[in-house]
Lab assay of single mutants.
Amino acid sequence: MATDAALRRLLRLHRTEIAVAVDSAFPLLHALADHDVVPEDKFQETLHLKEKEGCPQAFHALLSWLLTQDSTAILDFWRVLFKDYNLERYGRLQPILDSFPKDVDLSQPRKGRKPPAVPKALVPPPRLPTKRKASEEARAAAPAALTPRGTASPGSQLKAKPPKKPESSAEQQRLPLGNGIQTMSASVQRAVAMSSGDVPGARGAVEGILIQQVFESGGSKKCIQVGGEFYTPSKFEDSGSGKNKARSSSGPKPLVRAKGAQGAAPGGGEARLGQQGSVPAPLALPSDPQLHQKNEDECAVCRDGGELICCDGCPRAFHLACLSPPLREIPSGTWRCSSCLQATVQEVQPRAEEPRPQEPPVETPLPPGLRSAGEEVRGPPGEPLAGMDTTLVYKHLPAPPSAAPLPGLDSSALHPLLCVGPEGQQNLAPGARCGVCGDGTDVLRCTHCAAAFHWRCHFPAGTSRPGTGLRCRSCSGDVTPAPVEGVLAPSPARLAPGPAKDDTASHEPALH
């Protein structure tokens, strides 16, 4: 009773807030009518008042009428009001819900409408889902798969039609296919003929059939049928067999079959498995989609049935006599038709004709302190090069084509190399640097090759510096006499390219 009084008091307290929050009759008014909170006449009256005075006034009048009803109607109103779709449509209802007392429970059932309790003993237990329907569909599909699609060729003596089998029958139906081979029951999904010589313990000319048996419980189990008994694959494991010639990621696949039913060829011909030897223990289905393919039931050349050999690369099948050149017997292992072999060759040939990528240039590290003349020119003028003790990398590039010797140069053309002071002394051009340390401070000019250098860098042994005729380390061993002091540049003949010694390969005349 306390809860009923509290709900009535809360409705009177929030009546105006609810009326202002509800700006549309749908969905709240319609939901109240659906849950029998508002009768039909009051529903029509509220809609009429909404058209006349507006939605807030109409709902305020409806809530005032609701306060005169019993506690069950008020409880049902609060339940409908706080439904998710009403809270989404009328956003101003959320503060009312947040301020609702926590001790007021809106989930209690309506009085007088409590459903009768059902004894637990009368409640049926839930049924577990079964796979009976899938099993029945598999039974119905198996006879259809064994139905012949056409008439065999005159040369083929193997013609068999499976008798119709009602689904209610649980007995196995067997077809006489000759040579002791028996087909599987209607619940078998796949059958492959297997030679009895590969099964340990088999006697006589009995041949087993590799099947997948579907049981009534819905589970499946792969086994071997020899005669009327089934054997699990673990009985046929043979770890010492060295003649297993397995197909790549293979499961067994029928390579020879008669049109209309699988079996042995007439005249004692023995149908073979995809792999010879003992049956392997793992009978998992292969991951290669080509091995799941269903080959055609007629020859791809003459479009006739009979004894066919199936290609492992495509769905086509052929007569042995229709092949070019014809085959006398079934080859062992994987067999592919000429079209598949030709496609494989065409895929391999473009790969062989692809040009080989060019090898990157060989990189040879230079000892610290040495650099090529090109690196000396590329440096920024007026700045010493940083990191001189790091190992430089010199790339061996292809030799350029031989060019004509340089033409003779006048001494005026070499004027930018040297600057003559007032006393006739050779001065260095701006930006000249030593080729060893890279520093341009207090550098000297070689009178023979006009290269800038430090005496301490080229002659670290402490050799005394002569007063005139300074030469760098590369030119100090040259027998050519030094030019007379005061000459602007060496003779043009000295600039012609010539053979250089091994220790002077990195010091070429550089223009500054």
Results as ranks from 00 to 15, higher is better:
residue 103 D to Y: 06
residue 205 A to Q: 05
residue 119 P to T: 15
residue 145 A to Y: 15
residue 8 R to I: 04
residue 129 P to F: 04
residue 27 P to G: 02
residue 99 S to R: 03
residue 110 R to E: 11
residue 240 G to Y: 00
residue 237 E to A: 11
residue 79 R to A: 02
residue 18 I to H: 05
residue 143 P to T: 15
residue 270 E to S: 07
residue 46 T to V: 01
residue 243 K to N: 11
residue 27 P to T: 02
residue 56 P to A: 05
residue 94 Q to F: 02
residue 56 P to V: 07
residue 204 G to E: 08
residue 153 S to L: 12
residue 106 L to F: 08
residue 182 Q to R: 14
residue 112 G to I: 11
residue 73 A to I: 14
residue 30 H to I: 00
residue 98 D to F: 03
residue 126 P to V: 02
residue 172 Q to C: 12
residue 56 P to N: 02
residue 180 G to K: 10
residue 121 A to T: 03
residue 90 Y to W: 01
residue 174 R to V: 04
residue 149 R to L: 13
residue 83 K to F: 02
residue 107 S to P: 02
residue 99 S to E: 02
residue 226 V to Q: 05
residue 149 R to A: 13
residue 270 E to F: 09
residue 88 E to F: 02
residue 126 P to T: 02
residue 113 R to N: 15
residue 268 G to Y: 03
residue 52 K to Y: 02
residue 163 P to E: 02
residue 182 Q to N: 15
residue 211 I to K: 02
residue 41 D to S: 06
residue 37 V to G: 02
residue 175 L to H: 14
residue 203 R to N: 02
residue 53 E to H: 04
residue 264 A to R: 11
residue 120 K to V: 10
residue 168 S to Y: 14
residue 156 S to A: 09
residue 98 D to N: 08
residue 159 K to R: 15
residue 61 A to W: 15
residue 117 A to G: 13
residue 163 P to Y: 15
residue 32 L to T: 00
residue 158 L to N: 13
residue 66 L to G: 01
residue 138 A to R: 13
residue 212 Q to V: 00
residue 211 I to L: 04
residue 64 S to M: 01
residue 130 T to N: 09
residue 26 F to E: 00
residue 186 A to D: 11
residue 173 Q to R: 15
residue 217 S to W: 02
residue 42 K to I: 04
residue 57 Q to W: 00
residue 255 L to V: 10
residue 102 K to V: 08
residue 187 S to G: 06
residue 81 L to V: 00
residue 70 D to R: 03
residue 62 L to H: 00
residue 130 T to L: 12
residue 128 L to V: 12
residue 222 K to L: 02
residue 64 S to H: 05
residue 97 L to T: 01
residue 273 L to A: 09
residue 57 Q to R: 06
residue 7 L to F: 00
residue 27 P to C: 01
residue 260 G to N: 12
residue 247 R to L: 08
residue 24 S to G: 03
residue 65 W to Q: 00
residue 120 K to F: 10
residue 100 F to I: 02
residue 215 F to R: 03
residue 141 A to S: 10
residue 197 G to K: 06
residue 175 L to Q: 11
residue 233 P to Y: 05
residue 252 P to S: 10
residue 128 L to R: 05
residue 23 D to L: 00
residue 86 N to H: 00
residue 79 R to D: 03
residue 177 L to D: 03
residue 154 P to K: 00
residue 269 G to C: 08
residue 57 Q to K: 12
residue 153 S to K: 03
residue 23 D to M: 03
residue 233 P to S: 10
residue 126 P to D: 07
residue 204 G to I: 02
residue 45 E to V: 02
residue 33 A to V: 15
residue 61 A to V: 03
residue 164 K to Q: 08
residue 19 A to C: 05
residue 170 A to G: 07
residue 198 D to W: 00
residue 97 L to H: 15
residue 145 A to S: 14
residue 36 D to Q: 01
residue 171 E to T: 15
residue 204 G to A: 14
residue 149 R to K: 06
residue 90 Y to A: 03
residue 270 E to V: 14
residue 157 Q to V: 07
residue 74 I to A: 02
residue 96 I to S: 00
residue 12 R to Q: 00
residue 213 Q to F: 00
residue 169 S to R: 06
residue 220 S to W: 00
residue 227 G to P: 04
residue 59 F to R: 01
residue 25 A to I: 09
residue 29 L to K: 03
residue 263 G to T: 11
residue 17 E to T: 04
residue 40 E to K: 00
residue 148 P to F: 15
residue 131 K to W: 01
residue 220 S to A: 03
residue 13 L to N: 01
residue 144 A to C: 10
residue 58 A to T: 02
residue 247 R to V: 12
residue 14 H to E: 00
residue 118 V to F: 10
residue 52 K to N: 01
residue 272 R to K: 04
residue 107 S to F: 07
residue 242 G to F: 13
residue 122 L to W: 08
residue 205 A to V: 03
residue 74 I to F: 01
residue 206 V to H: 09
residue 107 S to C: 12
residue 133 K to R: 14
residue 198 D to R: 06
residue 205 A to R: 03
residue 11 L to G: 00
residue 213 Q to L: 02
residue 51 E to N: 00
residue 264 A to D: 01
residue 218 G to A: 10
residue 113 R to Y: 08
residue 8 R to V: 01
residue 40 E to S: 02
residue 251 G to C: 09
residue 193 A to N: 12
residue 219 G to Y: 12
residue 43 F to M: 07
residue 273 L to I: 11
residue 255 L to Q: 10
residue 84 D to Y: 04
residue 183 T to H: 06
residue 204 G to D: 05
residue 124 P to G: 13
residue 249 S to F: 06
residue 109 P to T: 15
residue 120 K to E: 09
residue 18 I to L: 03
residue 55 C to S: 01
residue 222 K to E: 09
residue 155 G to L: 04
residue 270 E to W: 14
residue 166 P to Q: 12
residue 28 L to N: 00
residue 214 V to W: 04
residue 20 V to T: 02
residue 158 L to Y: 11
residue 12 R to D: 00
residue 155 G to W: 15
residue 209 I to P: 03
residue 6 A to E: 14
residue 263 G to H: 03
residue 11 L to C: 01
residue 72 T to L: 08
residue 156 S to D: 09
residue 111 K to S: 12
residue 151 T to W: 15
residue 39 P to M: 01
residue 177 L to T: 03
residue 165 K to M: 12
residue 225 Q to C: 00
residue 82 F to M: 00
residue 224 I to F: 09
residue 125 P to C: 09
residue 147 T to Y: 07
residue 53 E to N: 02
residue 29 L to H: 01
residue 33 A to Y: 03
residue 102 K to N: 14
residue 118 V to Q: 06
residue 214 V to S: 04
